[in-house]
Design a protein around this nucleic acid. Structure first.
Lengths: 129, 129
DNA sequence: GCTTGACCTGAAGTTGGCTCCAAGTCATAA
DNA sequence: TTATGACTTGGAGCCAACTTCAGGTCAAGC
């Protein structure tokens, strides 16, 4: 039965973020004490850890909401979760390719810049087709 | 002397984007005809191509504005541009590392999922510390 | 003369994930 | 008893890079 400040500290989230997660329905039915103060149960905190971990993997809060809904029914969930994970994996691979290409191109420009005594080959490269 | 629609089509940008670029000062002093219609000169279009190319390299519009200002003075610009490019390169490398780590972790989860006949190891992985 | 379509403007809305604010309640410590 | 500090709320603000909207002008074609 932790209060919001303790939970925030424990999880490395801000209290505003915790309230925001509640507002968008990512965590639900947080108990309140007589004064209206949120009292997080262990299960709520586990849910929040789930959110954090899934977010770190690259899922959006919307996708995490889906994952959390799947959680109630693991048998039904398996293929759906697998599909979501595969799709996310594809996105990451694509993202990776694009960034690698950018990195290589920029790296080449910087090398060129080192090798060129005057003028600015980086700016020049933007000028020509 | 092209009109905004032609330029948009030629560059693969929307007319709204072109007007937006003008609003934020990324392109300046676009001529107008008697009716107030924008008339883009070749130099304006070159500038826009510069913007597109720099954006593709991963520079933000703000950074591109700086680059464009440098352009007037290539000698002075060189070290500044080099520094900006190096910094961007570092960012890209960092980004690359993070995404690779995510990719690997998710990939492992999907493999585990393939190898596990029942239950959902992906969801399970979010549950435990 | 009327319609169509491209253009104009300033302002507001969108996205995701927070972050901050003002104004108020409540329990505890000095 | 009063001051502190953690909590409450609804709502606004933030970021980038657009996108959409409402309402208006203008030139060309039928």
């Amino acid at each position: 039965m932790k209060r919001i400040g303790e939970v925030a500290l424990a999880l490395g989230l801000s209290v505003d973020t915790l309230r925001y997660y509640e507002k968008i329905g990512l965590v639900k039915n947080i108990q309140r004490n007589g004064s209206g103060v949120r009292c997080y149960q262990e299960s709520d905190i586990a849910r929040l850890r789930f959110v954090k971990r899934a977010q770190k993997i690259g899922f959006s809060l919307g996708e995490i909401a889906s994952l959390l809904n799947f959680r109630g029914n693991p048998q039904k969930a398996k293929p759906l979760v697998r599909e979501l994970a595969l799709q996310k994996l594809t996105e990451l691979e694509q993202h990776l390719k694009e960034i690698t290409a950018l990195r290589d191109e920029l790296s080449q420009l910087v090398n060129l810049c080192n090798a060129t005594p005057e003028g600015c080959p980086i700016l020049d490269s933007f000028e020509t087709d």
